[in-house]
């Protein structure tokens, strides 16, 4: 009896210890990022492109990376939505349940989900070589879309399962075709799809390895799809390795901006799912 209680006590102590440790470390990360980034964050930083080169120039900011990341993620999300929403609708509401094809498809998407971003980057690069393209916004969009399509499929698929059969039957009873029924379902799924979008934006905007080969890096803001583009993660990565302190500071403020973007995405995802779940059936 005593050893039992002792065991529980020891484990409870360990559990509390590890919880505190993890909580502490996670807060410490935020603290360091803010402490390092805040002093160098200024209006100039977010409104100007670097002058004199991103690696050596002391003046200017990281507008090139901010805009580059926004362009990149915007187009990638649009492309991914055009693929992942139809995929989830097909697997859940067009195919009959329990088909082998859908089981195989889900396994494939799970595997794709686990594939490292550097592999997507390398693959994107081989495609670009194949078509004779240079590192460009377009190449980045392809690689990032490949990266976030599985993320989107997974997270929309999770909410699609919750669609009540009654909704499908109610719509079909009114004489709707499968496609018309799916339009209603997509409407019902909008909060879930928004969450999926936010999630993929977070994943895509923060990933450096995919864009390393494909989007390249530049000091200016791209004006066409064929130009290379800077991105926030690479702005951090490249500028941190510079020997010049001002440039390093640009890296730290880029890190802070990226973190703030991620936190905002995370908050709005929570807000979305809470707000809209009230209106569901």
């Amino acid at each position: 009896m005593n050893t039992k209680k002792l065991e529980e006590k020891i484990f409870k102590g360990l559990m509390i210890g590890s919880s505190l440790l993890i909580f502490g470390v996670l807060l410490y990360i935020l603290y360091i990022i803010i402490k390092k980034g805040l002093p160098s964050l200024s209006w100039e930083m977010i409104s100007q492109i670097p002058s004199g080169g991103f690696y050596l120039g002391k003046e200017g900011g990281i507008l090139n990376a901010i805009m580059g990341s926004l362009y990149l993620i915007f187009f990638s999300v649009v492309i991914s939505l055009l693929i992942s929403v139809p995929v989830v609708m097909y697997l859940n509401f067009t195919l009959r349940k329990k088909s082998r094809f859908s089981a195989f498809a889900r396994l494939t998407f799970d595997v794709l989900f686990g594939i490292p971003s550097i592999v997507y980057g390398a693959f994107g690069f081989t495609i670009m070589i194949f078509f004779g393209l240079q590192a460009s916004l377009f190449g980045g969009i392809i690689a990032v879309s490949l990266l976030i399509i599985p993320v989107m499929i997974r997270s929309i698929d999770e909410v699609a399962i919750l669609i009540p059969v009654e909704l499908i039957e109610a719509t079909k009873s009114l004489g709707a075709t499968n496609y018309e029924t799916i339009k209603v379902i997509v409407r019902q799924l909008l909060p879930g799809i928004s969450t999926a979008v936010l999630l993929s934006v977070g994943r895509g905007i923060g990933d450096g390895a995919t864009v390393l080969f494909t989007a390249g890096y530049t000091d200016s803001i791209p004006t066409s799809l064929t130009q290379p583009t800077a991105t926030l993660p690479l702005a951090i990565f490249f500028q941190l390795s510079s020997p010049i302190e001002e440039v390093q500071n640009r890296a730290y403020s880029a890190a802070l901006i990226l973190t703030v973007i991620i936190l905002m995405l995370s908050f709005s995802a929570r807000y979305f799912s809470r707000r809209f779940s009230k209106n569901k059936i």
Binding site: I33, R203, G206, D207, I236, A251, Y252, A255, T259, I262
Partner: peptide, 17 residues
Amino acid sequence: SVVDLLAGIPPVIYGVW
């Protein structure tokens, strides 16, 4: 909520840290 938040933080930030 803290865990969700941090699960979304990009690798490069962890690298900086």
